[in-house]
Simulated assay, not measured.
Amino acid sequence: MNYEDVTWAPICAGLTAVGVIAAFFAFRRRGAAAGLRLLGWAVLPMAIFLTGMVKLLWTIGTALVQWVSGFIFSPVAWTGVALFGMAAILLPVAAVLRRRRAAAGAAETATGERVAPAPSTKPVDADGQAAKPAKDPGKPKAVGKGKAKQDDPLAEFEDIDEILKRRGIS
């Protein structure tokens, strides 16, 4: 047994003893689930001591405290935090802009030529009259059995609606 064992043994044993007593009272007052949960937490200090993890956890804890205290009082570290924040804003904005540019480029290459802005005057045909705009070949024609079916998108649900009304649901 070295010096560190002598120091940590009573601390871990004491924490475990207090936890076991608290688990006993929790078992009596709040039931088995609360008592067993508290007993599970209570045996952890002795488990840590017996496995030799006390020194590891102490080293990690002190390193973490030193890093946090150095971080909080360091203007250089806060400058780094500000730069992280700026990057968190700039990268998504750049991705959105890139997607928009790619979508515009895809529209240009689909037609095979660059899209020119619309002229301010209406085009005229050979007779000097206003030319009729050409139909857009990219839009498919609506296919339907009748005019009523095309106008009313819910027309195909009439049978279902009738069944529901018969059953008194709707």
Rank of each mutant, 00 (worst) to 15 (best):
V143D: 02
A103D: 13
A126L: 04
A106K: 10
A42C: 04
L90S: 09
L90M: 12
L64P: 00
V20G: 03
L57S: 07
C12M: 15
R30N: 15
P75M: 06
A77D: 06
P123V: 08
K139Y: 07
I48F: 05
D125P: 03
R167F: 11
K135W: 11
P75H: 06
K55Q: 15
M86K: 06
Q66G: 09
L90T: 09
P45A: 00
W58D: 08
L50A: 11
K132H: 10
R98L: 14
R167E: 12
L36Y: 11
L91G: 03
Q129F: 08
E113I: 10
D125F: 04
S170P: 01
S69L: 15
K122A: 15
V43N: 01
V115G: 07
W67P: 00
W58K: 11
A126S: 09
D152E: 09
A13L: 12
K147R: 14
E158P: 00
A33I: 14
S170Q: 08
F27E: 00
T51P: 01
G144H: 09
A22H: 07
G70M: 07
P75N: 07
K55W: 12
L90V: 13
W58H: 12
W41E: 08
I163S: 07
E162G: 12
G128Q: 01
R37T: 13
Y3W: 08
S120Q: 13
